[in-house]
Amino acid sequence: MNSSSPVLEASGLVKRYGRVTALDRADFDLYPGEVLAVIGDNGAGKSTLIKALSGAVIPDEGEIRMHGKPIRFSSPIEARAAGIETVYQTLAVSPALGIADNLFLGRELRKPGILGSVFRMLDKAEMQRQARQELSELGLLTIQNINQAVETLSGGQRQGVAVARSAAFGSQVVILDEPTAALGVKESRRVLNLIRQLRDKGLPIVLISHNMPHVFEVADRIHVHRLGRRAAVIRPVTHSMSDAVAIMTGATEVESDIA
């Protein structure tokens, strides 16, 4: 993957909140077809970094490039339009709406012809068909009814719906924020499998997680964030978990072998 150029990269990002510098000349890069984990202590600025990449935060300085071209997002909607899908920790699903409704929330399909253009009629059948297809591709069809309210699903199934939505619409990058934080062991496993499946479909993935075993299990590279900037990029094959923690906490200084 070193031979290709990054899908998404950022250099020298700075974001200040009053006197607090959340991002201090942070760099970032994501290559095609990889799972990049972003780890860091609380307050290291990793969530600000992710928000900058997903359009939720506008950096004060620095540049974000997609396929080498500079881009600026002023809202998450713009980032999404550019093909960057984010699964937030809060999941951003509407509990009372059904699975299909949630998958297409904000980008509903309308019926062709006059029904769609004049009467704005939704094409429910088509949305349900695509939702069913997307879920079965991800092996999530244990969900019985595509119109079932999301609040009646288990935590893992909800996470599955949110991931399925990002997979269905994320054409360039999928960002997952702590996808296993609220899940039990079994359900975490399924979500990790989902992440691998997405990567195998060719989507590069950014995974933010506190869970070291999970990170070392699925990540191809690990971006360690410390004090508002990238401290190192390591590989699970060359570094151990304790190395990662040492870099994260500042116990070891690494002249990074940035891949």
Binding site: P76, I77, R80, T86, Y88, T90, L91, A92, V93, S94, P95, A96, L97, D101, N102, L105, G106, R107, E108, L122
Partner: peptide
């Protein structure tokens, strides 16, 4: 659908792009 989603969970609806 957006009316329902907005009333159901406004922040989630916002994040979903509504």
């Amino acid at each position: 659908r957006h009316v329902y989603a907005t009333g159901d969970d406004k922040d989630a609806a916002e994040l979903a792009g509504i």
